[in-house]
């Protein structure tokens, strides 16, 4: 599905997530977040360590069921997706994830890692491989398609991970510190790739980062603290 730019892909309404901490006390990791992510926009999420950024991505990515509030993705309330299996199917079709570590499967080649996400979705292996190579080509990593992750550089690995996130044409891409392990040049490249996903595929892209150098690439920047969104800026508007 290709959503129209500017229409909401993800809506969080007063979403709260509470964890039971090690001492038995409840930790309020997310304290009522309301947020809309639009198709075609790239949003940066900043904030101090422990403020709830990863928890926000988990709630948005349907990995964590919120303790309170409502999550709606592609027009469907997450609460209506009842079982873990159905949730996984939903995730596979609509969401792509990128993390600080590429988390590639070491025994598979770059192309196979990307193809796997499609094979899981029922695409025949040969067709999946063909599409995986095309995706890698779009990310300028096609020349490493036949290599295992161990022989790729950190930046190359991360681009393969991005290709895998895009394998099933998601409407929402969630990235948690995708450039933290990369030098600034390679980090910038990955950020640009994510931005082009928003622009060209009209996906909503949310990136958690500590890296202030890529601020100019975001359409919107959210500042978080203590489980809440405390500020929202539009860098383009300031410039």
């Amino acid at each position: 599905m290709t959503p129209q730019p500017g229409t909401p892909v993800l809506s969080l309404r007063d979403v709260g997530v509470r964890y039971r901490g090690g001492d038995g006390a409840m930790v309020e990791a997310l304290a009522g977040v309301t947020l809309d992510l639009m198709a075609g926009e790239m949003v940066g999420i900043f904030g101090p360590s422990g403020c709830g950024k990863t928890t926000l991505l988990m709630a948005a990515g349907l990995l964590e069921r919120p303790t309170s509030g409502a999550v709606q993705l592609a027009g469907i309330p997450a609460a209506a997706v009842a079982t873990e299996a159905a949730l996984r199917d939903f995730r596979r079709r609509h969401i792509g994830f990128v993390f600080q570590k590429p988390n590639l499967i070491p025994v598979l080649t770059a192309a196979e890692n990307v193809a796997l996400a499609m094979v899981i979705d029922g695409v025949p292996a040969a067709e999946a491989e063909r599409r995986a190579i095309a995706l890698l080509a779009a990310l300028e990593a096609a020349h490493r398609a036949g290599n295992r992750p161990a022989s790729l550089s950190g930046g190359e690995q991360q681009r393969v991970a991005v290709a895998r996130a895009l394998a099933n044409d998601p409407v929402l891409v969630l990235a948690d510190e995708p450039t933290a392990a990369l030098d600034s040049r390679r980090g910038r490249q990955v950020m640009e790739v994510l931005r082009s996903i928003a622009r060209e595929r009209h996906a909503a892209v949310a990136v958690v980062t500590h890296d202030p150098r890529s601020i100019d690439l975001f359409d919107r920047i959210l500042e978080m603290d203590d489980g809440r969104i405390v500020a929202e800026r539009r860098p383009g508007a300031q410039a």
């Binding site: 995730r91 988390n103 996400a117 899981i120």
Partner: peptide, 13 residues
């Protein structure tokens, strides 16, 4: 870890 990753990208049980 890989199995968690597979589940994350939507692999069925």
């Amino acid at each position: 870890h890989e199995i968690a990753m597979l589940k994350l990208i939507g692999a069925r049980d």
